[in-house]
């Protein structure tokens, strides 16, 4: 166990070094990047929603699941909330947004757990469903922000935007949840071998359900900030959001096959993507090149993980289902 821990620390350290490299590289090339205002109000503020959703996504991926519908849960939650705010006011709007997130997560979880359909298929289908409902209800037009969302998206506390505080709080909670609680242990266990975990007397279904609901709720929370930051949202705003979140989680060293990963990795992954996004923009690198750079960073990290993991993996218990990782 101690060995494993040491290994993980090194791993995140590597990731941290990569981030430092990128950060220093961009800072030396572009002077505008290094202003505290840009770093806090643009670089960090812009990544918050994605980073926030990446936290529960890490848990879901560690337990061997995935959620492709996150972006569209956010859009649906803001759409319904935004519409409610017009006729009912802010209070009900907040409630409706949160309930929407919860119900969306619950639907995902129930279909996955009760109907035993793979998470990818389920959330792919609900992705269309949530997108379609937002589009139909909003009739394709934009939904506007209301006082609570505007407050969350645009307020600063001690010179730092409120949403960064929220993110820090959530990051701490999720880190503790994953590394210090039995629930966290159970998640790894489900990811490594679901059946064995089930036979060990752990209520796997309940945990799964809880995770998808949690993810839906965090999406709803993030959707307030999102709506507030942009002042309006359209049904297609959530497109590609899922891939951005998954990119961060995977970049952070979480294995898409489940069982491996850490919250610190995800947080550093978030920083790397934030730095790349905002750094390359400020360097006037066209958006197409930015896509290539992000893709390359992802590929390089993936290969690095593959190299490091291939050895460590062999020593671990033989996993039946994680077939692609197995050597003959």
């Amino acid at each position: 166990m101690a060995k494993k821990k040491g290994f993980k620390l090194t791993f995140n350290a590597i990731l941290f070094l990569i981030w430092l490299f990128i950060f220093a590289g961009i800072a030396t090339i572009s002077s505008a990047f290094l202003s505290p205002n840009y770093l806090i109000n643009v670089m960090l503020r812009n990544i918050i929603e994605i980073g926030m959703v990446a936290l529960p996504m890490t848990l879901i991926i560690i337990m061997g699941g995935i959620d492709l519908s996150v972006g569209n849960i956010m859009v649906l939650a803001s759409t319904l909330g935004g519409l409610a705010s017009i006729s009912l006011g802010s209070g009900p709007a907040i409630l409706i947004t949160l309930v929407t997130g919860l119900v969306c997560g619950l639907i995902n979880g129930l279909v996955i757990v009760k109907a035993k359909i793979s998470p990818m298929v389920t959330t792919l289908a609900t992705m269309y469903l949530y997108l379609g409902i937002s589009r139909g209800i909003s009739k394709g037009s934009s939904i506007y922000s209301y006082d609570f969302a505007t407050f969350l998206g645009n307020t600063s506390l001690f010179g730092i935007p409120l949403q960064i505080w929220i993110y820090i709080l959530l990051a701490v909670i999720f880190t503790v949840l994953l590394s210090k609680t039995t629930l966290g242990r159970k998640l790894y266990s489900i990811g490594l071998n679901e059946n064995a975990t089930r036979y060990a007397g752990i209520d796997v279904d309940k945990i799964k359900l809880f995770m998808y609901v949690l993810c839906g709720l965090i999406c709803a929370l993030a959707s307030f900030i999102w709506l507030g930051r942009f002042t309006s949202i359209k049904f297609d705003a959530g497109t590609n959001f899922n891939m951005k979140v998954i990119t961060i989680v995977v970049l952070g060293g979480t294995s898409i096959n489940g069982g491996i990963g850490s919250m610190a990795g995800t947080i550093i992954g978030t920083l790397i993507i934030a730095t790349l996004n905002s750094g390359l923009t400020v360097m006037n690198i066209p958006i197409d090149v930015q896509t290539i750079v992000q893709g390359s960073v992802l590929i390089v990290s993936l290969i690095a993980y593959a190299v490091v993991n291939s050895r460590a993996k062999k020593k671990k218990l033989i996993k039946i289902q994680a077939a692609p990782k197995q050597a003959a």
Binding site: I256, T291, I303
Partner: peptide, 15 residues
């Protein structure tokens, strides 16, 4: 590289 296909193709998409 034995990288799971969903992640690998996610990366090549960007390229």
């Amino acid at each position: 590289t034995r990288i799971p296909s969903i992640v690998a193709t996610l990366a090549t998409t960007q390229l």
